[in-house]
Design a binder for these strands. Sequence first.
DNA 1: AACTGAATTGAACTTGGCTCAGGTTGATCT
DNA 2: AGATCAACCTGAGCCAAGTTCAATTCAGTT
Lengths: 207, 207
Amino acid sequence: MGTKIVEPEAGPRSKRAAILAAAVDCFGETGFEATKWSTVAERVGIGQTALYHYFESKTHCLLTIMRLELQRSHDKFTEATADAADPVEALRSAVRAAYDVSDHEVLQMRILQNHMDLLSGPRKSKREEAERVAARQLVQLVERDWTNLLVRGMSQGAFPLRDAQLLGASVLGLIVSVWRWYRPSGPTPLSEVSELIEGACVRMVAT
Amino acid sequence: MGTKIVEPEAGPRSKRAAILAAAVDCFGETGFEATKWSTVAERVGIGQTALYHYFESKTHCLLTIMRLELQRSHDKFTEATADAADPVEALRSAVRAAYDVSDHEVLQMRILQNHMDLLSGPRKSKREEAERVAARQLVQLVERDWTNLLVRGMSQGAFPLRDAQLLGASVLGLIVSVWRWYRPSGPTPLSEVSELIEGACVRMVAT
DNA sequence: AACTGAATTGAACTTGGCTCAGGTTGATCT
DNA sequence: AGATCAACCTGAGCCAAGTTCAATTCAGTT
């Protein structure tokens, strides 16, 4: 039960984690296409070809970042909705959890949202394709998370009956659309966003 | 008043329109990065270098597509909300208009949404930068369209008072988030999406 | 010290967007 | 018809950035 997937290649002098961190910064701030793969290497302090010891390609690294972020999102949702009997309270808790993130995680969300389309088509190489499939499954898992929350609320009479699939996708779309424009340095604090969206979701679903 | 911007380079044997159409198909279905610029040329029936007679670069073509789509969205919004006194009815009409699109326009919306981030940073070349700035302004214009609609409704007492800026961005985000997953060939007809989102928006704003 | 596998590198290769210098087409004018 | 000019197009080749590969270094083990 609950097979814990352990990250590979965690040798003692492995720079995998450092590369991922640097890549998130670069991809998140400069954009994936715009950042040179060699720049990531520089920031870590290694030659560009050393990157290929850890990742098969620039895209493979991106897909890994996306998969990890999806995993995180799913875990956080599960944790947030675990101990909430009332569907409305569960919904509120889930939304708040979605915006309870660090600056670094904001970047990861941005990267994830900006490259969702990568998950549709198949990839050339093995390891890339593996990450893609894993990420794709996590996307469906997260979608089911939200849909199930709605289904539960509807069957319990807390939410009016509607197409839970479609409504779930919409709620999720509304929540993640924020990551396209939100900047930690911007004028709007995330707490304010969180409150408005929380209210909006409840009205959308529970009215 | 109302200076009509006429598209340049509309010579009698110009293939500009054909190129744009082909590019929308390729970029929309295969993705911008994944489609080879030369493939677009092939589909039009010209050599790849001929493309540079019409567009300074692959990106310049993309930015043009995005600008045209933004213009279309703004025009459609304006037309849809022109003759609606009641704010709620105006909102409903605007949402319906947003989903009253052809398959080709669906692709254009997808392209636009997938590359919004291009509009943040400045571009190297003149013509690219011009398109980028124009597109950026149109984005703000569309955002104002929705915000103003909300402000009007709030001051009229039809909508409860909330942060119109933020709520407007959210409504818009909800609406356009559909273009990330919707496929004309998919199981969900656009009419169904339109109805659900229309209801969701009204509840979000007018409750 | 010899051995092993992970980690790293410089140099060369590949791909795809882009430049350039010049050639072709066709509408218009005389 | 023939001349003219701008719009339109092309083959050859350049260049940047991702990628491959054989050779090398490093850290821990026997």
